[in-house]
């Protein structure tokens, strides 16, 4: 796919759409299109977080595993959402599992590439980190609400 097409897709994507043109150009330089089939694992907790993904189409689940427990879902994500923030922080390992629920089309962004660009351009870096701070905030809300099991029956 041509770089300008990726640039156009990023520009229209909810996650990136309010970034300045210059940022989009830089970011699209680290991007490529990927597809994933329903049931496939996009990321495993603890594996190298070299990338993050923005969802163009489809549905994925962010979840956590523990022995002798059903996978604990954190959040379902879809078009407009992002999977992965661990690429920002050493040691760059995934914090949760990400499983595709449907055949999904994603844009894969090279974390090391974007980190380098953010280091060189702190204004870009600030905008990107702010975006990911919001992703983290959403995960925190989702994880804490799930942990509380708010709809559980509470016996008298």
């Amino acid at each position: 796919m041509m770089k300008h097409e990726l640039h156009e897709i990023l520009r229209q994507h909810d996650f990136f759409k309010d970034l300045p043109e210059d940022d989009l150009l830089v970011i699209s330089g680290c991007a490529k299109m990927v597809m994933i089939k329903a049931g496939e694992v996009l990321a495993r907790e603890g594996s190298d977080a070299n990338n993050f993904y923005v969802v163009r189409m489809g549905k994925l689940r962010i979840e956590q595993q523990a022995p002798a427990m059903k996978p604990q879902p954190i959040q379902t994500i879809g078009c407009g959402d992002v999977a992965g923030w661990s690429w920002l922080f050493p040691p760059y390992r995934w914090s949760f599992d990400v499983i595709a629920l449907e055949d999904s089309r994603l844009i894969c962004l090279d974390g090391a590439c974007l980190r380098g660009k953010c280091e060189n351009n702190h204004s870009l870096g600030y905008r990107v980190v702010k975006k990911f701070a919001d992703v983290l905030r959403q995960r925190l809300h989702a994880a804490s609400l799930q942990a509380m099991d708010v709809y559980a029956p509470r016996e008298d």
Binding site: K59, R61, E63, P73, I74, Q146, D149
Partner: peptide
Amino acid sequence: ATVDTASPSWRGNMGVVTK
């Protein structure tokens, strides 16, 4: 609709309603 927990066959939304 979204649910907090489901059997692995559930293909619907899971997680917080705010999503």
